[in-house]
Design a protein around this nucleic acid. Structure first.
Lengths: 178, 178
DNA sequence: GTTTGTGAAACGATTCACAGCT
DNA sequence: AGCTGTGAATCGTTTCACAAAC
């Protein structure tokens, strides 16, 4: 498949959210314009985004809501289940949603028993790389990183960093620059 | 000032982080190349980013670390202090960093007594818009929104939305598309 | 010799505009 | 008549490349 821009993938995820809402309301078809207004973009953008993956709509009519939602789930890889673990949040022993927070010392034991596909990393910056190394050694293939550092990982591992300080600083910039 | 791209502002924030590290190590000058390698970008990108705001470097030498850091703090609006509140996280009455979590019912009372410049919104999606309305009525000028909804706010208020489900879905996409 | 600052070139993403279906 | 799908045009961002400064 031709390379699809990250911004396109992010919008697909938004479209899916809206389609699921429409699905819940029993709406059967939706136009690119309706999807666009819901997501703060344009109808041309919606059509272009979808056209990267095929043509799902009917001219004169729009897109069939359940089918398009299903295709988007497929494209985004949401048909399969992921084993996701969160590392670094909570106090050891605390219970949460039927899960118990384990000591990081048991990481290798736990992940060997029950491997993870993805990890959400919420550890302090100074240990983030070390923990990431342990995770990738344990075959974790995706990391959502909240530590304010650039992680270096093997090429087959995908990392997305969310840096809260940075987000606040862009707000600060926006405030001082009208 | 000419319009500066959001991506540029985000990188400035990263550069500042690195400069502060260099500052701590007593390093006095840094080249665009050194800043670039630290932040996963290119030297030309660093120079272009900085050139939007002036020329801070010395040819043949690089950039003076403390001066550039100071200028970046200035550009990003970090010389002033912001009153920042977090709405929706924690259990009422809990103490955290010397603060006590208050009932949302007291929002108007608290923010009238002690106004906020920014709010971090961590409330469920279905009440996010209503809380945002209350915040903007209370003169909050920037919102970092973690609810998976597009907030609509007055034109003088700046909103940045961080959508964790969406970030996980882009990881999912990356995993299934090698 | 090294490194900045910056126009120009290349690249990438968005918007336009319209032919083609329904 | 309405709306999609898509090349072409536009717009914005990144990279190149080099003259100027040290």
């Amino acid at each position: 498949m031709r390379k699809v821009a990250e911004s396109t993938v992010r919008r697909l995820s938004l479209y899916l959210r809206f389609l699921e809402e429409f699905e819940g309301q029993g709406i059967e078809t939706v136009s690119s314009g309706a999807l666009a207004s819901r997501g703060g973009t344009t109808s041309a953008q919606v059509r272009k985004d979808l056209s990267f993956f095929g043509s799902f709509g009917k001219r004169g009519l729009g897109y069939p809501v359940p089918e398009l939602a299903d295709r988007l789930r497929d494209i985004l890889g949401l048909k399969r289940r992921y084993r996701v673990g969160m590392i670094g949040a909570g106090k050891i022993g605390k219970h949460w949603n039927g899960l118990t927070v384990q000591d990081i010392a048991t990481l290798e034991k736990e992940l060997t028993r029950q491997p993870l596909d993805m990890a959400v990393l919420v550890v302090p910056a100074d240990v983030a790389q070390a923990v990431a190394d342990r995770l990738t050694a344990l075959k974790v293939k995706a990391i959502l990183n909240f530590a304010p550092v650039q992680l270096s990982v093997p090429p087959d591992v995908v990392v997305k960093t969310v840096n809260l300080a940075l987000e606040l600083e862009t707000l600060s910039y926006a405030l001082v620059n009208r």
